Amino acid sequence: MDVEELRQRLQYEPESLPLSSKIGAIDFNKVDSALKWLEQADNHYIIGLFDPLYPSLLQQIYDPPTVLFIKGNINALLPPSIAIVGSRNMSLHGANTTAKIAQDLSLKGFSITSGLAAGIDGAAHQAVVKCQGVTIAVLGCGIDVVYPKRHKQLYIDIQHDGCIVSELWPQVSPIASHFPKRNRIVSGLSIGTLVVEAARKSGSLITARLAMEQNREVFAVPGSIVGQYHQGCHDLIKNGVKLVEDAADIIEELSSLSQFHLDQLHQRHHIEQSEMSNLPFSPQLASLLKSVGYETTTIDAVVEHSGEPLDLVLVQLLELELQGWVAVVPGGYVRLKRS
């Protein structure tokens, strides 16, 4: 990628990037710095809003980042993700609950997205790293800045199977105004957001609100009515958010969402009835399976061919993956041959 290509990608800059709204006024010292960062390692990436590698779910939100800086395994952006957020001052019970749910979701094929903050965020990332799953850390600072510093080793470990993501230039320091913007990326990358241990003024509730505005699912773990550490979660539950005790509650809700959409679907004209009758699942899943080729098929191609909304396609692909009919590969999905 050269300066001119990066210039084209930065035509509509988010406020978080320290650039003028006019492309002619770009600070090319920053551009040069970003390009030098890009060349430092093979696992450094800069992707624009219309890049094929740009996460499709994030692309759908009201104000998606124009540019993403990514460090680590770029394929970590492919699996359906669940965000886990919560208190920086977590209890032992909160840490254990977070670790158990994060690991169980990871073993079911989900990636786990969070903000690398102290407390619940760190516990979620750490649990997934421990089971060699995929986790995505979204930063409120430059991609090469570790914050908090205590998470330096975790920052490194995440990159093996997962990745670090930021919309901010390299070397940008963490400041308070960056984190609400960071939160929209955490929720925007995910099909659902789980809140663990949140007080009423918790920043985690900002992420939950953003998830709702993005038409994503929100879940909350209840806790003791004594003290103030769970009041935010309890308020969410009172307002209709699903109460979660374990990963199965989240998976059940996503399956219910899938079934809600499936009930409204019509059989696709390109699916032969004889072929569907030989498959051990619903005609709707059979329809989606026909949209995945034996060669690498991008998620955008699956959505276009199937005619279904992206959130439903991701849920259905996960079901097909768990049943062994498709596999996640770099660039999308492939159909597997089964007897």
Score class of each variant (00 low, 15 high):
residue 1 M to P: 13
residue 4 E to C: 10
residue 5 E to K: 14
residue 11 Q to V: 15
residue 12 Y to C: 07
residue 18 P to L: 14
residue 19 L to W: 13
residue 19 L to H: 11
residue 27 D to L: 09
residue 28 F to N: 10
residue 29 N to M: 02
residue 30 K to Q: 13
residue 31 V to T: 07
residue 32 D to T: 07
residue 33 S to L: 12
residue 33 S to H: 08
residue 36 K to D: 15
residue 43 N to H: 15
residue 46 I to P: 11
residue 47 I to N: 03
residue 48 G to K: 04
residue 49 L to A: 06
residue 49 L to D: 08
residue 50 F to A: 09
residue 51 D to P: 03
residue 53 L to Y: 06
residue 54 Y to V: 03
residue 56 S to Y: 09
residue 58 L to F: 07
residue 60 Q to I: 03
residue 62 Y to S: 12
residue 62 Y to K: 11
residue 65 P to Q: 02
residue 66 T to M: 05
residue 67 V to F: 11
residue 67 V to N: 02
residue 67 V to G: 01
residue 69 F to S: 04
residue 71 K to A: 05
residue 71 K to T: 03
residue 73 N to L: 06
residue 73 N to R: 11
residue 74 I to V: 14
residue 75 N to C: 13
residue 80 P to L: 02
residue 80 P to E: 02
residue 81 S to I: 00
residue 84 I to K: 01
residue 86 G to R: 04
residue 91 S to H: 12
residue 95 A to Y: 14
residue 102 A to M: 09
residue 102 A to Y: 02
residue 110 F to S: 00
residue 110 F to E: 00
residue 110 F to L: 00
residue 111 S to I: 02
residue 112 I to W: 01
residue 115 G to R: 06
residue 115 G to D: 03
residue 119 G to Y: 03
residue 124 A to G: 01
residue 126 Q to A: 13
residue 132 Q to W: 02
residue 139 L to V: 03
residue 144 D to Y: 02
residue 148 P to E: 06
residue 151 H to K: 05
residue 153 Q to E: 08
residue 156 I to S: 12
residue 156 I to K: 14
residue 157 D to S: 14
residue 159 Q to N: 03
residue 161 D to L: 13
residue 163 C to R: 09
residue 165 V to Q: 05
residue 171 Q to L: 06
residue 174 P to R: 05
residue 180 P to G: 00
residue 184 R to C: 06
residue 185 I to E: 00
residue 186 V to C: 00
residue 191 I to S: 08
residue 197 E to T: 05
residue 200 R to M: 08
residue 205 L to R: 06
residue 206 I to E: 01
residue 208 A to F: 04
residue 210 L to E: 08
residue 210 L to C: 04
residue 212 M to V: 02
residue 224 S to R: 13
residue 226 V to S: 10
residue 237 I to F: 07
residue 239 N to L: 08
residue 240 G to D: 01
residue 242 K to W: 08
residue 243 L to G: 05
residue 246 D to G: 14
residue 248 A to E: 14
residue 251 I to A: 04
residue 262 L to N: 07
residue 263 D to S: 14
residue 263 D to Q: 15
residue 264 Q to E: 15
residue 264 Q to P: 00
residue 270 H to C: 14
residue 274 S to I: 13
residue 275 E to R: 15
residue 276 M to H: 06
residue 277 S to F: 08
residue 280 P to V: 14
residue 283 P to C: 13
residue 283 P to S: 15
residue 284 Q to A: 15
residue 286 A to Y: 05
residue 287 S to D: 10
residue 287 S to F: 04
residue 291 S to Y: 04
residue 291 S to D: 13
residue 292 V to I: 14
residue 293 G to H: 06
residue 302 V to Y: 04
residue 306 S to W: 04
residue 307 G to E: 03
residue 307 G to P: 07
residue 311 D to A: 12
residue 311 D to N: 10
residue 313 V to N: 04
residue 315 V to E: 10
residue 319 E to Y: 03
residue 320 L to G: 01
residue 323 Q to K: 07
residue 323 Q to Y: 06
residue 324 G to P: 01
residue 325 W to N: 10
residue 338 R to I: 10
residue 339 S to T: 02
